[in-house]
């Protein structure tokens, strides 16, 4: 790890100042569960690390505008216990799936949303797009964990966020602040992620000097939600594929539905057609199967990850069944 300057602001405004008065080569430290690894591998080499843990406003969970506003520094452990999040089951499922108390205690919601891809070419120093002498290493090499959607361009990694599918399914928004202390905007999380076309682009709309301050969840009315992650290992492991569903059922039929797949593309993938097919019908096992088929029907697997289509399909089906309390099957 290269030497760096450590800064610890007390307010959001101070945090933005410290991020921006330094020529831009700064990094935000939230829980640090991944930043430290990235710095050790010298994939991220900031001159200054701005530690947000001392900014109280970033660690609050409270009701706002009929929904719930969660500070980006709230830890997974705090989310797991908080009564205001009782009705957002899909988020709880994610925390249950992160089977390491160390990560649950240190990891933060904002950190998860900004987690850089786990693509092994990226992590080995070949860059986010992993292109060497004009050849996509992902395409030519081992892509067993890579994208099966949205992979026709240069980017073929998968979005690493565990919470994004569940939050997008709930219609969450993120508050982005900076670069100036006066600047703040609220963006639907669905529009937060981008697929980079060039190696100097990132994986989100965040510009240098910006950070996520809060995540806002709409009010939970009668919706039922679930996340289903396909995890190979029972310990700490990254999902091979995941899906989150959020459905509202009235009079025995689906009134609204949103299905979002994770770890299958450079961004979370909203399965609009699959959700639409459910509307006005009972959410039966057959309906879940049909939605799952539709969700993956446009998949474009690479040379060695065709199996992930089946996993994404299973995740969609099981997230729908799990949301309504139907036994989802599996082990």
């Amino acid at each position: 790890m290269r030497p760096f300057e450590y800064a610890r602001p007390d307010t959001e405004a101070e945090a933005l100042e410290m991020l921006n008065d330094h020529g831009g080569n700064t990094a935000v430290l939230a829980g640090g569960t991944d930043l430290i690894s990235l710095m050790k591998r010298e994939l991220v080499t900031p001159d200054r690390v701005v530690d947000l843990k001392n900014v109280p406003s970033l660690s609050e969970i409270r009701e706002e505008d009929g929904g719930v506003r969660i500070g980006s520094l709230v830890t997974l452990d705090e989310m797991q216990k908080h009564p205001l999040l009782n009705n957002y089951q899909s988020l709880r499922h994610v925390i249950d799936g992160i089977r390491a108390i160390q990560i649950q205690h240190m990891g933060t919601l904002g950190g998860d949303l900004c987690h850089l891809p786990n693509c092994w070419y990226f992590r080995s120093g070949y860059g986010l797009l992993a292109i060497e002498r004009g050849v996509s290493l992902v395409e030519a090499g081992d892509n067993r964990y890579h994208a099966i959607f949205g992979n026709q361009g240069a980017a073929k990694f998968v979005s690493a966020s565990r919470f994004a599918p569940g939050l997008v399914a709930w219609g969450a928004r993120v508050e982005v602040i900076g670069p100036n202390p006066q600047q703040s905007e609220s963006i639907p999380l669905e529009h937060f992620y981008i697929t980079p076309k060039l190696s100097n682009q990132g994986v989100t709309v965040l510009k240098p000097g910006q950070l996520i301050s809060h995540i806002w969840l709409p009010v939970a009315r009668q919706q039922q939600s679930a996340t289903y992650e396909v995890l190979q290992m029972e310990g700490l492991d990254w999902p091979l594929a995941a899906a989150a569903s959020c459905v509202e059922i009235e009079g025995g039929v689906v009134q609204s539905a949103k299905i979002v797949m994770g770890h299958v593309a450079p961004t979370p993938i909203v399965a609009t057609a699959a959700a639409t097919i459910l509307l006005g019908n009972a959410l039966t096992v057959d309906a879940a199967n049909l939605a799952a088929d539709i969700a993956v029907s446009q998949a474009t697997p690479l040379s060695n990850n065709g199996y992930k289509v089946q996993l994404a399909r299973t995740a969609v089906k099981r997230s729908l069944l799990k949301a309504i309390g139907h036994p989802e099957g599996g082990i």
Partner: peptide
Amino acid sequence: MDNKTGRYINTDLETYKLPRIGD
């Protein structure tokens, strides 16, 4: 082993997968 680069690409404990108690 990655055929393209000739490299051993899962050399950390996230991708060199070993069982935990639950497994």
